[in-house]
Design a protein around this nucleic acid. Structure first.
Lengths: 190, 190, 190, 190
DNA sequence: AATGAATGAGGATTCATTCAT
DNA sequence: GATGAATGAATCCTCATTCAT
């Protein structure tokens, strides 16, 4: 618990970076290990398997994201603020970074063929949805589920756009778009 | 371009299906060839390269899509109808199919690391955007560019959601969501 | 059936030689391929698998042996001659060669952990046994099954001895030993 | 040599068991160590080398065997009894066990490519041979060397048969076969 | 046009072995 | 004495690709 996790973490971070900068899951364990400054064998020592390493990387991203959401929710004090907190976290400097977004897209793809990744992603989806629905209900809007789906969908779509063309959109403008959409969805109720 | 293309086309279609059903670009030329019922060598004969085959597959999808958009636009007679035509095409039975959507997502990923794919995708993006903007302008809305971005973003996002979890959304409901968003965006102007 | 089998056969022969001279199953596909003058990949092209290559090698040895037994039996005209034919084949120049014997021992070991090899070996065992029993019965000896077991056992034992120490015994002397044992077993009945 | 050897011995025994149950020398130091309940590194600490561990395992088997032969010889009081003692030891419950026989076969293979193992095996062979010859001479048979070779060969052959197919033969029947062969060899002289 | 044979270049994974603690 | 961390060196196997036919 003292020295090992250090290397483990280096590997996870290196995996995210390698996938993110390459823009593809087609990276070798060797290149990840080199980036982490360790031998490829160590990756197997810790994760047993390339898939498990990828999964750990995905979990890492989602954990950071989840922690940030929780922290942001704590700071907010009204439904509206909480909605903005949930949305805003997606565009925070920590999450809305080139390589992270690219890695994230690749993990989406991964979950199409790798069950455990799919399950992980599903948890994130459900949480985001229920977070949104919860606050929308508090606002008293008519169809909170549908609105949540559209907001979440728009977030994902803007991520996707940004993944393939980072220059297209800044975190600021992307965030503004989602908030604008939110405005139009709930206008009268806030 | 007249008789031989039969095999060429089989290969392109097989590539889409193989990528779509596998849910990954990690498919072999061999598996594609087998699906097409030809030898792997023939794929190289026609495309020279795995990348070119993938590119052809991507082009195939976008061509079908483009043709459909054009046809739908022709049938429409008002800006509003044309907007709905453009949106609706994304959810037509031809385009909004499991394997096609999955392949499409993979092509998005591909364009992160493969220039020609990136350019192809960009053309599609620009066309969709300008199509939307054109009609939005005709309606006289205030910020057509921003609205187009959000609508296009939502479409992509719903595609993405559907890619990883086909049961989540039907073409009908996805389409309805985009139209609902449109409604909220342009409400007063229609 | 014209060109390929050539390379296939080269590989099988190379496998036997490599195992035989190394005296171990711990040989690489690469070394076998090099000996055969082909690329390692070709071995996989033809056999799919290292195990299958080994199995083919084993089958090769047993086939040659089986053919020789059959030929020798044809030339013999009395039960006693046929017994000697069956025994003698085990010590023929083709079969009782250093590398073949060593390979043969290794295949015995292989059949301890590889089902298909075990089955192959069993067939050979049963054939040898039934061949011996058949002729012993014709001679009218009292317990043909037991005698066959001892003769077959002695053959195997002498093979084993020769495998680990080729200088110990010549084909001639080994053969003489088995024939002597046979003599003592059936003395009065011939 | 007094207290520590406990772990050493566990490793040797584990090696025999691992090789015996696997039926192959293709076992890892890790699996042996795990079976012994110690860390792989300890195996290197004690033996320095995988080969040395295997050699120690082989020596262990041969030592047990040798001790038993000596003990059995002590109990016997006539040449004939001593012959039977020597033969019988090979089929004693301690030696004629599934995993021991299998390990033994693997050590035979090992001695084909590993000098020290070869030497060890040779010592055993020479001892068995001279033991047999000594008693056969005492009986006054005509060609004691040849008979010893055949008896020893048959023993090895039956071991071999049992190694690959334990159900084929019991210790009892195998032993009976060797004694029967002995009978036929020396019948008149006993 | 079409294919099977053939290969070079990896890449995941394993494992004997070392070493600091 | 005993171990977990760490690695270098294989090795099997895959696959894009070429080429002769």
């Amino acid at each position: 618990m003292s020295v090992q996790p250090q290397r483990r973490d280096q590997l996870v971070r290196a995996a995210i970076l390698e996938i993110g900068t390459t823009g593809s899951l087609d990276v070798t364990v060797g290149s990840i290990a080199k980036r982490a400054g360790v031998s490829p064998a160590l990756a197997f020592h810790y994760f047993g398997d390339k898939d498990q390493l990828f999964l750990a990387a995905m979990r890492h991203i989602l954990t950071i994201y989840g922690d940030e959401v929780r922290a942001a929710l704590k700071r907010a004090s009204s439904p509206r603020e909480r909605l903005e907190a949930v949305i805003g976290t997606n565009f925070s400097p920590m999450n809305f970074r080139q390589e992270v977004i690219s890695a994230w897209l690749n993990f989406y793809v991964m979950s199409q063929s790798f069950g455990p990744a799919f399950r992980l992603l599903n948890i994130y989806h459900r949480r985001l949805h229920s977070n949104l629905v919860h606050e929308l209900k508090a606002l008293g809007v008519s169809d909170p589920g549908a609105i949540a789906t559209r907001i979440a969908g728009l977030i994902d779509g803007l991520y996707l756009r940004n993944a393939i063309n980072p220059r297209d959109t800044t975190a600021r403008s992307a965030s503004a778009h989602v908030l604008a959409a939110l405005e139009k969805e709930i206008g009268e109720f806030q």
